[in-house]
Amino acid sequence: MSVSIPAPRSQRIDPKYKRGPKSHGSFEKLAWLFMRLSGVVLIVLIFGHLFTNLMVGEGISGIGFGFVAGKWASPLWQFWDLALLWLAMLHGANGVRTVINDYAEKHATRAWLKGILYVATIFIIVLGSLVIFTFDPCVTGSQLQQCL
């Protein structure tokens, strides 16, 4: 008696046995540390920012062009806002980089998403820094005290 058994249809499933080449340096370690350290500093910067803008003086109704101009006349607030800009952007960008690494499955998708992320991050950091340092409250028609 002979039995004929059909040949198996299954092929070897492509197993991703091999991890990519070993990474050099400790970038991921530093990124991990940066997230925690910048997070602690951001707590102070963000709540300080919210408090002075919303709780002190006239509160939210006092916020306007003049309010911002007044704040940026002081080097303290220039520094505060600059630190907030850089830390929040780098912290947020690195966080989104992690999210992309965790969720994008294809190499090309990852590369594209991260490329867009880096360009956007650099653009906002550069633009924001320029605004803080080159800000001129005396636009034409300004009614502010120091421009008259």
């Binding site: 070993k22 990474s23 400790s26 970038f27 991921e28 370690k29 690494n101 965790d102």
Partner: peptide, 11 residues
């Protein structure tokens, strides 16, 4: 484990 695929990927 200090690799980019090591402990730092833990969320």
């Amino acid at each position: 484990l200090n690799d980019k695929e090591g402990v730092w990927r833990c969320r």
